[in-house]
């Protein structure tokens, strides 16, 4: 038996919105630690690795580890039937061919449940090595979304250049070119508005804006995003999943293969 109850159900709605445009289907791997999902997009350019920690749920029961194969578009549609303030419970029997979602209104005067068929998925997992990145950039997630959206006007790719002075995002195309420079915040009152660069070595890398724009769908989960880069390795974009009190419930991480010279 697997059962997980999340009082702040909107977090699960936001998690689904952050992955459904990038992935068609994926397995939720449920264990005592929590619910994990790892999957690549169909072209193997981007990977999603997400974690919802068991202690982030108000109730969490997982008698034995199970893998729930899910059509993500279907799950997203069902979660849209939950109100933003609903409590969401996910339930699956061992060896079941279906998963149940229960939505309770805060006053418990409306309870709905939806059963969805599970899929048999042949999932292959990639081993992601622990990496000490040359640069880690933290910035407001809304700022990153805006940069990706604005530079998409000019081209398909963004060059991210991180030095001790700050970060520069550049794009060029038929109509011209554009640059956005962010300086490190000297002093900010609010931590979530800060731009912080932790740099061991300067890095310049090129990435597809199409994929970065998919990643920014996770911005509603977190006020800050971090970009971790080293020369010639995939970029890691991380949004932490925090509840209203700011406690960590997990993360959504995206990995994106760089554009490289042949």
């Amino acid at each position: 038996m697997f059962e997980a109850r999340l009082v702040e159900g909107s977090l699960l709605k936001k998690v689904m919105e952050s992955i459904k445009d990038l992935l068609n289907e994926a397995s939720w791997d449920c264990s005592g630690n929590g619910m994990c999902l790892q999957a690549m997009d169909s072209s193997h350019v981007a990977l999603v690795s997400l974690m919802l920690k068991s202690d982030g749920f108000e109730n969490y029961r997982c008698d034995r580890s199970i893998s729930l194969g899910i059509n993500l578009a279907s799950m997203s549609k069902i979660l849209k039937c939950a109100s933003n303030d609903d409590i969401i419970t996910i339930r699956a029997e061992d060896d079941a061919d279906a998963i149940t979602f229960m939505f309770e209104s805060p006053k418990q005067d409306r309870v709905s449940d939806y059963e969805m068929k599970l899929m048999n998925l042949d999932t292959e997992h990639l081993g992601i090595p622990d990496t000490e990145y040359a640069c880690v950039i933290k910035m407001p997630s809304g700022e990153f979304s805006r940069i990706c959206r604005d530079l998409s006007v000019l081209g398909d790719s963004v060059i991210i250049c991180c030095t001790k002075d700050g970060v520069r995002f550049s794009a060029k195309g038929d109509l011209g070119n554009g640059n956005i420079k962010l300086a490190q915040s000297a002093n900010v009152d609010k931590e979530e508005e800060a731009v912080v660069v932790d740099m061991r070595e300067a890095v310049t890398l090129t990435f597809s804006l199409r994929y970065l724009n998919f990643f920014t769908k996770a911005a509603p989960l977190s006020s800050q995003v971090s970009l971790s880069m080293s020369e010639d390795v995939p970029l890691m974009v991380e949004y932490k999943i925090n509840d209203k009190e700011g406690d960590s419930k997990g993360y959504v991480r995206y990995y994106l293969a760089p554009k490289i010279e042949d």
């Binding site: 193997h44 350019v45 990977l47 090595p129 597809s208 990995y255 293969a257 554009k259």
Partner: peptide, 14 residues
């Protein structure tokens, strides 16, 4: 001209 690489050239199958 830069080309898009894939993740499978960086990460091994687990």
């Amino acid at each position: 001209v830069k080309n898009q690489s894939t993740l499978t050239s960086f990460f091994k199958k687990a």
